[in-house]
């Protein structure tokens, strides 16, 4: 099966396959890891230096744990590729991007044009997250921006 990946980074993609969190802990040279919904993403914190790709699996779009995993990793300094895989649908892309995902490997391929339209769903945002978008309160109070 050809995997279609939507990628929004300029660096070279990682060639290594992503391994499970348990396997990753045992392999000191692994650079790509896959998180399942029940995994503790923060267990990866001591190893962020050597990780180039973290895949976050969504077995069902309705299981939202991956959003917290992604945003938590970004908040704590992870700058490598963060990829949402699995049951990733067009209607979730925008929120995923806001939580720090910068690549997507949906089970059912999504076209780049459709993805762009999804990212543009909301002209503005209310919350400050990890995507660099200024929240509405910052636009209202430019002087108060930290």
């Amino acid at each position: 099966m050809v995997e279609t990946v939507l990628r929004y980074r300029t660096d070279e993609p990682v060639g290594d396959p992503a391994v499970t969190v348990d396997a990753f802990a045992a392999q000191s040279n692994a650079t790509a890891v896959r998180i399942e919904p029940g995994d503790d993403a923060l267990a990866l914190l001591p190893h962020l230096e050597r990780i180039a790709l973290i895949e976050v699996n969504f077995p069902s779009f309705a299981d939202g744990r991956g959003y917290s995993a992604a945003r938590s990793l970004r908040e704590r300094g992870y700058t490598g590729e963060l990829r949402a895989v699995g049951d990733v649908l067009i209607d979730q892309l925008s929120h995923m991007r806001r939580c720090g995902f910068d690549s997507f490997a949906p089970d059912k391929p999504i076209s780049a044009e459709a993805a762009e339209a999804a990212f543009a769903t909301w002209p503005e945002v209310y919350q400050q997250t990890v995507d660099g978008r200024a929240p509405i309160w910052a636009a209202r109070h430019p002087a108060a921006k930290a």
């Binding site: 939202g64 945003r71 929120h95 209310y126 509405i136």
Partner: peptide
């Protein structure tokens, strides 16, 4: 209300 509106992390609790 504003904070919770389209909150990206908490839409699939």
């Amino acid at each position: 209300r504003q904070w919770s509106t389209f909150h990206p992390e908490f839409d699939y609790l």
